[in-house]
Simulated scan of single mutants.
Amino acid sequence: MIQSMTGFGKHVIQLPSKKITIEIKSLNSKNLDLNARIPSNYREKELELRKIIANSLLRGKVDFGLYIELTGNETTTKINEEVVKTYMDQLGNMANGDNLRLLDIAMRLPDALKTDKADIDEEEYKTIQEVLKKALSEINIFRTEEGKVLEKDFITRISSLQELLEEVKKMDVERIGTIRERLEKAVADLKVELDKNRFEQELIYYLEKYDITEEKVRLKNHLDYFSSTLTSADSNGKKLGFISQEIGREINTIGSKANFAPMQQLVVQMKDELEKIKEQMLNVL
């Protein structure tokens, strides 16, 4: 089953004095491109959190946000009283003013506030890990649902390519006959004496260059392989991309060998279907 690289997951938990929120968004990317926004006191845990995310999401442009909102009396930021008093004394010496005005100015000056670096609470960190896992579960469910939509589209496109291939097979007999008649007419118009046996040999050699039997067989195999890969247990976006390239090569070769307008029209339709597959393939995990 395939997964999309587009997804969103969010989980919130309320602790006695804090609310912890984790949001994860992902878009398509060739590799894992992870952008993390976390509080400064949890920076030392960033690598661990990144590893958890990488193991779950594997690929995509991922935005991860950890938000901790204080809802109680707990705070790590305090007023630096000695510094503020010194500022107010100096301001009072320089100009007259009421204390509230001086305090307002003093609080804006450097070092008026100090932040104590709080040690990481291990129980709180365990809670954050659990919240992260739940958010990852939500985004993976989102990705799976998006993947089902992509899978339906791929099945439709591959089915269309198989139908067009069957039309190519039916048309191939007529194509060879038409090319042969065209060549025989061209030679007849020259009105020259030819060795019939030699002409037949050259004609067969010429027609062999336009033979697409191998291309038809390989194209069918690639289409079948694409369909079976869609139903595999893992999401194989890169593998499906490689198979799409092989499908494109066979279609291009059939087009270059066709030398027959009705078949070339079918090839154009096949290219159109394949292009739509490739566009969607960019979003497959």
Rank of each mutant, 00 (worst) to 15 (best):
Gly9Pro: 02
Gly9Arg: 03
Gly9Thr: 00
Val12Phe: 05
Leu15His: 12
Pro16Ser: 15
Ser17Glu: 15
Ser17Cys: 10
Lys18His: 12
Lys18Met: 06
Lys19Gln: 10
Ile20His: 07
Ile22Val: 02
Ile22Ser: 04
Ile22Thr: 03
Glu23Gly: 04
Ile24Asn: 05
Ile24Arg: 01
Lys25Glu: 06
Asp33Thr: 13
Asp33Ile: 14
Leu34Gln: 01
Asn35Asp: 13
Arg37Glu: 09
Ile38Phe: 11
Asn41Pro: 04
Asn41Asp: 14
Tyr42Phe: 15
Arg43Phe: 15
Arg43Thr: 13
Glu44Asp: 13
Glu44Asn: 15
Lys45Ile: 09
Lys45Arg: 15
Leu47Gly: 02
Lys51Ala: 00
Lys51Thr: 06
Ala54Trp: 03
Ala54Asp: 09
Asn55Gln: 11
Asn55Arg: 08
Ser56Phe: 03
Ser56Cys: 01
Ser56Ala: 09
Leu58Ala: 07
Arg59Leu: 01
Gly60Arg: 05
Val62His: 03
Asp63Val: 11
Asp63Ala: 11
Phe64Pro: 08
Gly65Val: 14
Gly65Asp: 05
Leu66Met: 07
Tyr67Thr: 07
Glu69Ser: 08
Leu70Asn: 15
Thr71Lys: 04
Gly72Leu: 12
Gly72Phe: 08
Asn73Glu: 11
Glu74Pro: 01
Glu74Phe: 08
Ile79Leu: 14
Glu82Arg: 09
Val83Trp: 04
Val84Ala: 02
Val84Leu: 00
Lys85Asn: 13
Tyr87Ala: 08
Gln90Ile: 11
Gly92Ala: 15
Met94Thr: 14
Gly97Trp: 05
Gly97His: 04
Asn99Gln: 14
Asp104Thr: 14
Arg108Gln: 14
Leu109Cys: 06
Leu109Asp: 04
Pro110Arg: 02
Ala112His: 01
Asp116Gly: 11
Lys117Gly: 08
Asp119Thr: 14
Asp121Met: 10
Asp121Glu: 12
